[in-house]
């Protein structure tokens, strides 16, 4: 089981929330929003690959 993915996503979430706080405090709200958005897209790419893998597995296993 690929447990690294969970830690990767959790770490990215914490780093991005810290970056967000720092950027908001220094008055760069737009950059903070963009950072959150980019982080979300990166994590989404990771998760979508795994979801595709799961669905493929279900399809091959049950001969769909």
């Amino acid at each position: 089981m690929d447990v690294d993915l969970i830690f990767k996503i959790a770490g990215l979430g914490i780093i991005i929330s810290i970056l967000n706080q720092v950027l908001v405090r220094s008055g760069r709200d737009e950059q903070a929003t963009m950072t959150t958005l980019v982080g979300l897209v990166v994590v989404l790419m990771l998760v979508v690959q795994k979801i595709a893998e799961l669905f493929e597995l279900v399809k091959t296993l049950f001969e769909f």
Binding site: V3, A10, G13, I14, S17, G39, L40, L44, E53
Partner: peptide, 26 residues
């Protein structure tokens, strides 16, 4: 831990955990 800061990451993390567990179980 993450949900307080940004809830969308928490949802993605729960999806990732669910998918990993299911891939193993299948």
């Amino acid at each position: 831990l993450i949900r307080k800061q940004n809830a969308d990451f928490a949802l993605l993390l729960s999806i990732a955990c669910m998918v990993l567990v299911l891939i193993g179980a299948l």
